[in-house]
Amino acid sequence: MYTLLGGDGRPYRSAVPGRYGGHRRSRIYGRLDCRCALRALGRGGYRRHRVFFATERDALVAGYRPCAVCLPERYAAWKARRP
């Protein structure tokens, strides 16, 4: 079983792993193969605040923003919508 965050920001159990990873403190989500996230995980300080989402929609509704490195187009669209 895997623990994912839903759009309401609450964790739930899933038999299927998440497709996106996020960082609880910075409220950023991205692909699981993101080079920045993998580098941070390699240093060890990031793991404690790691969360997972089944969909991008869940991440966005939960208040996370797209990663500028691994999701640059989605990040640009997110940034353009900000006031």
Rank of each mutant, 00 (worst) to 15 (best):
Y46D: 14
R43N: 15
L5P: 04
R25M: 11
H23A: 03
V69S: 14
A76R: 07
R43E: 15
A54C: 07
R35L: 12
A76G: 01
M1P: 10
D58V: 10
Y2V: 02
E73N: 00
E56S: 13
R25W: 11
V51E: 15
H23P: 00
A76L: 02
L60I: 12
F52Q: 09
C67P: 07
L38I: 11
L41H: 14
E56G: 07
R43D: 13
Y20R: 10
G9S: 08
F53W: 09
A62V: 07
R57T: 11
G44Y: 09
H49W: 08
M1R: 08
V61H: 05
Y64S: 09
V69R: 09
S14W: 15
A54I: 05
A76F: 00
A40H: 08
D8K: 08
P72F: 08
T55W: 05
Y75C: 04
G63K: 14
V69H: 12
L60V: 13
A76M: 02
A76W: 06
G45A: 14
R48T: 12
R10D: 08
Y29V: 05
P17Q: 08
C36R: 04
R19W: 04
L32I: 14
A77L: 11
Y12D: 00
R82M: 07
P11N: 02
C67M: 08
C70A: 06
G18L: 00
S14D: 12
Y20V: 04
Y75T: 05
L38W: 03
A37T: 14
R25L: 14
D33H: 15
L32Y: 03
I28P: 11
G18M: 01
D33I: 05
A59S: 09
G21Q: 04
E56A: 12
L32F: 01
H23Q: 05
T3H: 03
A80V: 02
W78T: 01
T55Q: 10
A76N: 02
V69P: 09
H49N: 13
I28F: 08
A59D: 09
A77K: 11
F52T: 03
P72T: 01
P83C: 03
R39C: 06
P17D: 06
G6D: 11
P66I: 05
Y46L: 15
A76V: 00
R48N: 14
G21V: 03
H23T: 01
R35A: 15
G44A: 05
G45C: 13
R19S: 04
R82P: 00
P11Q: 04
V51I: 14
A54T: 07
W78V: 01
R82E: 02
L38F: 07
G42F: 03
G9C: 03
